[in-house]
Computed example of a mutant assay.
Amino acid sequence: METSVQVRRAVTADVALLLPLCAEHAAFERLAPSSEGGVEELVRALGAASTLYAWIAMAGDTAVGYSSATLDFSTLDRATYLHMDCLFVRDGWRNHGVGRLLWNAVHAFAGERGCRNVQWQTPEWNADATRFYRRLGALETIKRRYVLPLRSTV
């Protein structure tokens, strides 16, 4: 890869760049595509009163990856932590340092916000992600994740 990759905070104007990345990420993780638009919700979440923080990796005018996170509070730790919801790099751009650049942005943000730690999950079968996160020095904890849909997805 000759093209330099830059990571920056995503803003509402980046939603058109993020949506295809989110769709590719869902397909990669073997998730059913969302039948709901959700565009307005994503714009609102990235807006001025942010509840979602996101970063986008750009190679020139091409979006090649993204990460996203929310601030949360752990009653067990009695501290704020950053929940990294997504870290995704497009096929063809993996193993070129893009994931590390996105991680560095997430990590720096967590430090700036005084978070005790960063938490996230990855599918059990994603051995590449597991190796990447272990190289970062992350500790693995085993828990089951549950999802209970509250809205119809039809």
Score class of each variant (00 low, 15 high):
residue 76 L to I: 15
residue 11 V to Q: 14
residue 37 G to D: 14
residue 152 S to V: 09
residue 154 V to C: 14
residue 141 T to N: 12
residue 73 F to M: 05
residue 154 V to H: 09
residue 144 R to C: 09
residue 152 S to G: 14
residue 42 L to G: 05
residue 8 R to S: 14
residue 45 A to G: 03
residue 114 G to F: 09
residue 61 D to S: 12
residue 7 V to N: 02
residue 29 E to Y: 13
residue 64 V to L: 00
residue 6 Q to W: 06
residue 67 S to N: 06
residue 24 E to L: 09
residue 88 F to S: 06
residue 81 Y to L: 10
residue 67 S to M: 06
residue 99 G to I: 01
residue 79 A to V: 07
residue 6 Q to V: 15
residue 48 A to S: 14
residue 77 D to V: 10
residue 116 R to C: 10
residue 76 L to K: 11
residue 117 N to H: 15
residue 1 M to V: 11
residue 36 E to K: 12
residue 103 W to N: 02
residue 138 A to G: 09
residue 12 T to K: 09
residue 120 W to E: 00
residue 105 A to H: 01
residue 65 G to F: 00
residue 108 A to E: 12
residue 150 L to C: 07
residue 119 Q to K: 11
residue 38 G to V: 06
residue 150 L to N: 01
residue 66 Y to S: 01
residue 127 A to W: 02
residue 146 Y to Q: 08
residue 23 A to P: 06
residue 135 R to S: 14
residue 24 E to G: 09
residue 98 V to T: 06
residue 41 E to N: 10
residue 77 D to T: 14
residue 84 M to I: 05
residue 53 Y to M: 13
residue 147 V to Y: 13
residue 105 A to Y: 00
residue 34 S to F: 07
residue 82 L to G: 09
residue 60 G to F: 02
residue 6 Q to R: 15
residue 124 E to C: 05
residue 27 A to C: 08
residue 119 Q to I: 00
residue 144 R to N: 15
residue 68 S to W: 04
residue 104 N to F: 00
residue 75 T to G: 08
residue 33 P to T: 00
residue 123 P to C: 03
residue 13 A to D: 15
residue 113 R to N: 11
residue 139 L to A: 13
residue 35 S to Y: 05
residue 146 Y to I: 03
residue 99 G to Y: 00
residue 103 W to T: 00
residue 94 R to M: 02
residue 24 E to P: 02
residue 111 G to S: 00
residue 116 R to Y: 11
residue 121 Q to E: 14
residue 6 Q to M: 13
residue 1 M to F: 12
residue 104 N to Q: 14
residue 32 A to C: 07
residue 79 A to Y: 08
residue 126 N to W: 01
residue 71 L to I: 11
residue 114 G to N: 03
residue 16 A to G: 10
residue 63 A to R: 02
residue 85 D to G: 08
residue 8 R to G: 10
residue 148 L to A: 09
residue 93 W to E: 10
residue 116 R to T: 05
residue 34 S to E: 12
residue 42 L to K: 02
residue 120 W to G: 04
residue 47 G to F: 03
residue 116 R to F: 12
residue 48 A to E: 15
residue 149 P to S: 11
residue 55 W to A: 04
residue 62 T to D: 12
residue 153 T to Y: 15
residue 52 L to C: 07
residue 106 V to D: 11
residue 126 N to H: 00
residue 12 T to C: 11
residue 20 P to N: 11
residue 152 S to K: 12
residue 143 K to P: 03
residue 116 R to G: 08
residue 71 L to C: 09
residue 139 L to N: 10
residue 66 Y to C: 05
residue 48 A to Q: 15
residue 48 A to C: 04
residue 153 T to K: 11
residue 106 V to N: 10
residue 131 R to I: 02
residue 52 L to G: 06
residue 142 I to E: 14
residue 144 R to I: 09
residue 37 G to R: 10
residue 132 F to H: 01
residue 9 R to M: 09
residue 127 A to P: 01
residue 67 S to R: 08
residue 114 G to L: 02
residue 97 G to Q: 05
residue 129 A to Y: 01
residue 76 L to Y: 15
residue 137 G to V: 00
residue 148 L to S: 07
residue 138 A to L: 03
residue 144 R to D: 13
residue 118 V to E: 06
residue 59 A to T: 03
residue 31 L to G: 04
residue 86 C to D: 15
residue 16 A to H: 09
residue 89 V to F: 06
residue 122 T to K: 02
